[in-house]
Amino acid sequence: MNLIERVIAISRRRSPWICRLNAGSCNGCDIEITPLLSPRYDAEQLGIELHGTPKHADIVLISGTLTLRSRQAILDIYDQVPNPKAVVALGSCPSSGNVFAGSPLVLSCSLDTVVPVDVWVPGCPPRPQAILDGIARAAKLLEDGATKSQLAKSRLAGSQPESRCGRPS
């Protein structure tokens, strides 16, 4: 690893820009993100900036129950994030569906089967400290080149089996 690559790798950890994606959340997790930017938690100390567009983001925070309608939106927005990128799943909903599991319009599978998730932040909703920790861990993974999308890229293409979950068969 030469000097410039090393500087870029450090910069990835020191400047993670995040983008929120509400996949059908009750808004609880999204409300817990806003204190991160407030004086108490001040995420800017870690270089975290909240951006509205996925084109500027490094880390996508996906919150909420996955629904039949949001599946394609998640895939579209994930594809718009330029590489290298990381995904942080906020709360219990993306992993299990939480209290909404089994509802007719809710996907009965975890977010991992739709996009590769790097960090899971449990809680309903997770505390702001936990979200901050999750973002910091994802940023460290970006530095090490160890996010799932980076690993899949460094291996040969097609190493991740396509999931059929939630697709109209």
Binding site: S15, E44, D58
Partner: peptide
């Protein structure tokens, strides 16, 4: 009333963007 970004933050922002893919 916040602490604010570290000294090298604008430099890190630009270096990180230089290492990213262009869509």
């Amino acid at each position: 009333g916040r602490q604010g970004p570290p000294f090298f933050q604008p430099f890190f922002d630009v270096m990180k963007l230089l290492g990213k893919e262009t869509v």
